[in-house]
């Protein structure tokens, strides 16, 4: 177990170094960084001097190492566009994205799992068929379309919910939250639903197919033959056995939700990291793009690590190593 964690941590470091290399390469190969920093009328000598002070004349390896060390310390450099530390910009934007993403994935889990269980138990029921049909829409409609349609209905026609922004936010130290004000919560509803819908249908369909699989197994039949109540069989025995794939997918999806909240954030003018990234791409603001890349990679690595640890919590076959298969007496 301990060796496993160490091994996974080393792998994670390797992944992060690779990502850092790609981010670092962005600086070198997307045009000359000096050109991005200075005006057209800067003299060659000034450029040379700047090159020297920025360390751009050192070998690539030295520069890469310096980049890795700085990044690890959280120093992503200055935004070309805004002339502010990228770190500060990220910290401002991160709460918005994380709140939206986490609320969305929770929404997806707490609605998707029960719906998946329901549709697997009442496979031929009317409601189950409706759920399955709706899930087809959720899985096939593009996110931005759902967002725009929600805005049209609830924002423009019914005027119940704000169509853009985050509403009022409250600062808790460096973290700004929209979860504590009414307008913040109202502003969160539509983006969260938009972002959650696809994940929800994915989780629902996953739970359904896993449940159908598990319900056919011998241990479920044996549990029924022992007279255990339906609740104990379906939720105690069957649902727990579907958890491993559900945890895997949910973890991966949380990563994707954070990374690809971009579209939803654009539709709802949500002041998160995704929108910052889109703006950075438009402005060729490489420090911001590189920092975003590293940060998203870090999220994925951490989430995957947590997912692996959750396997251990769920499945005793992984937990107990060796343990002896016990000879027959």
């Amino acid at each position: 177990m301990f060796a496993f964690i160490i091994r996974r941590l080393l792998q994670s470091v390797l992944v992060m170094l690779t990502v850092a290399l790609i981010a670092f390469a962005l600086f070198r190969f997307v045009g000359d960084p000096i050109n991005n920093l200075v005006g057209q009328d800067t003299t060659l000598q000034d450029r040379q001097k700047l090159r020297e002070t920025l360390g751009l004349n050192d070998s690539v390896v030295v520069q890469y190492w310096r980049y890795v060390v700085n990044t690890a310390k959280g120093d992503f450099g200055y935004s070309y566009m805004h002339r502010r530390p990228v770190k500060t910009m990220l910290l401002e934007r991160m709460p918005a994205t994380l709140e939206l993403s986490i609320i969305s994935i929770l929404l997806a889990l707490f609605i998707g799992v029960p719906m998946g269980v329901y549709t697997s138990l009442r496979r031929d029921g009317f409601l189950a068929k409706i759920f399955m049909s709706i899930s087809l829409i959720g899985i096939s409609l593009p996110t931005f379309l759902i967002g725009i349609m929600l805005i049209l209905l609830f924002g423009v026609i019914l005027r119940w919910l704000p169509t853009f922004g985050r509403g009022e936010v409250v600062a808790l130290g460096t973290w700004t939250t929209g979860l504590l004000t009414v307008s913040g919560l109202k502003a969160l509803i539509m983006p969260a639903i938009t972002l959650a819908l696809f994940q929800m249908t994915l989780i629902m369909r996953l739970v359904r197919s896993e449940m159908l699989e598990v319900l056919r197994t011998d241990y479920i039949k044996f549990a029924r033959a022992r007279g255990l109540s339906n609740r104990a069989v379906n939720f105690g025995h069957a649902l727990k056995n579907t958890l491993v794939p559900v945890i895997t997918i949910t973890g991966l999806q949380l990563g994707s939700v954070i990374a690809f909240a971009i579209i939803t954030e654009s539709v709802f003018q949500w002041p998160g990291m995704g929108r910052m990234f889109i703006e950075a791409v438009a402005d060729v603001d490489i420090p911001v793009m590189a920092a975003y890349l590293c940060l998203i990679a870090l999220f994925f690595v951490v989430i995957n690590l947590i997912v692996d640890l959750l396997y251990y919590a769920v499945d005793p076959r992984l937990r107990v190593d060796g343990g002896g298969s016990g000879g027959h007496g």
């Binding site: 197994t217 011998d218 241990y219 056995n241 769920v314 499945d315």
Partner: peptide, 9 residues
């Protein structure tokens, strides 16, 4: 081998 739920003691 398949009659017992693998996740419970």
């Amino acid at each position: 081998l398949t009659s017992l739920n693998p996740l419970y003691s």
